[in-house]
Design a protein around this nucleic acid. Sequence first.
RNA 1: GCCCACGUAGCUCAGUAGGUAGAGCACAUCCUUGGUAAGGAUGAGGUCACCGGUUCAACCCCGGUCGUGGGCUCCA
Length: 639
Amino acid sequence: MDKKIRLTFPDGSVREYNSGVTGSEIVEQLNRRLAKEATGIVVNGVLKSLPEHLTEDAEIRFVTFDDKEGRYVFWHSSAHLMAHAVKRLFPEAKLGIGPPIEDGFYYDIDLDRPITPEDFEAIEKEMAKIVDEDDPIVRKEMERDEALSFFKKIGEDLKIELIEELNEEISAYTQNDFTDLCRGPHLPSTGRIGKHFKLLNVAGAYWRGDEKNKMLQRLYATAYPKRKMLEEHLHRLEEAKKRDHRKLGRELDLFSIQENIGSGLILWHPKGGRIRRIMEQFNIEEHYKNGYELIYTPHIAKLELWKTSGHTGFYRENMFSPMQVDEVDYQLKPMNCPFHISIYQSSMRSYRDLPIRYFEMGTVYRYERSGVLHGLMRVRGFTQDDAHIFCTQDQLNDEIIRVLNFTLYILRTFGFSEFEIYLSTRPEKYVGTPENWDSATTALQNALDKSGLEYEIDPGEGVFYGPKIDIKIKDVIGRSWQCSTIQVDFNLPERFNVEFTGEDGQRHQPIMIHRALMGSLERFFGILIEHYGGAFPMWLAAVQAVIIPISERHHQYARILFDQMRQAGLRVEMDARNEKMGFKIREAEMQKIPYMLIIGDKEVEEQLISVRRKGEGDIGKLSLQQITERMKEEINAKK
RNA sequence: GCCCACGUAGCUCAGUAGGUAGAGCACAUCCUUGGUAAGGAUGAGGUCACCGGUUCAACCCCGGUCGUGGGCUCCA
């Protein structure tokens, strides 16, 4: 009855409480502000609801929306709130799962009638009503049979399916007329959620992510404890929309995708083409510096080649259909590797030749299901900065380190500084010997350790032919994109019987590394567009400066400047249109051109140039030589 | 591929109980020669994604196809 328990707080202090005290009670006494903000309590490392009773000595800490765990609770309860509202409006709706996600939460709902954005308001209204009711959210533990009969009674078939597979303790949370199967934890009452929520969109999602299952309607939404936070989040979404590479691609005339050409096939317009050329040139030069040889290979080859490589087996669903030429089947290439191997095999290789590093800007075609295509990010024809390294076992370690450093150098030059790195190890189905896998995995891991970079291990996530390192880059608004991949391959050397002559005069099989740094140029370009919001740094900008003569009598001088700057290798244009200066400046700003060079009477007379920097405004007068130098410095600094 | 939504001028979007369409920007011509984010006038521009059906009549209703978007799944 009067049992006391000792609770340890994060600052190390220890207090005594009556056994059975709840988190809510403790935090009420402790700190009124925290009491308002706390969404849950962590007891000995386990996240729990505030109203749960504590009966043992423990270390405790309260979590708020500022903590990951706190947000989890907040959004989880928000998901229940939304489901509750949906059930009130559509009692026949059946509930799937409704977890918190990165920026909010969703709930999968089985309902014959499609939910449309027009319904959002009604759902939000009902949610607000439930918040006003401030219904206590009560946990109840259930026996399996009890849970089954309860959810059967209320017709929640999908929940039944979940219960049948549950091994842990079964619990449900009830708020007023709504009960949901749930592990929890939750906020103490619906009023604690507040009204700063918003339904964002609705999309189809297969029950349990399996396309053989029924398609449910997934309602996405978000919620925040404060109005301002919700507004900021919505603002971020707006920002992301503004940066959308598909929108910018059109506005800046970089590329297009056209119906009569085909889905997932990119047309690079002149400005996009310029930027691509710069990306390629830089990339190729750096590859030469790093000991690679540039090669070119065809876009199609006999189907037989792809049988040898095994692609017709394990890669079949991603390949375009073969075409017949002179009664022989040919295949559009989905990868470059077999060609690189064929070049390797065009003559005898000695251990003295290794490592051999073949590099290609290889254009490949892959069949992607229509629903997954997305601007430049997911296409059916793309060009990879692809390379294959053939080396000995002894060289593997050094090669991986080289590749890793090279990758990071390239990515950093393009303006990315944050990375997420994953090491994927041997999956259940694999080729090669466990010993080879181990040594290759060790080599990858050693390289990562030496680099001093943080990385995560994805156990069993390797490709069947070898372990790999994937590098994701983070863009300015915090989204991550996978571009680079470094993969060890035990499969192809075996299939093609790739060999070299060793010191001992015997034939040996080299190890093969596949690697792409930017990955797909198309996708990398898309990421760059969004990363820079279309305002490319000088070294990448399609147009680095536009010359703006104020009136026709300045054209002659402007023309001379234009020619000279072009001669100096700068990407300059001249806006000789019959428009006012303000108009031309506005346009240049919107086109995100870094420099505007204004030429009027004063400039002609003084033989100077008025320089306006995008986003900054007038920065004064410079001579042709000064502005040329300034621009070149910026270009060389690649900033 | 699947679910939902969408497809009107180069772009952004109006539009009609079913009677072959409209704005702004962009474009062309003319006027204007203008100092740091939109000068003015006139004009041209559309098989209303495509194919079929219903109807006296379809951009609108119905079916199919293609494409786009949000997701599922997969991945560079």
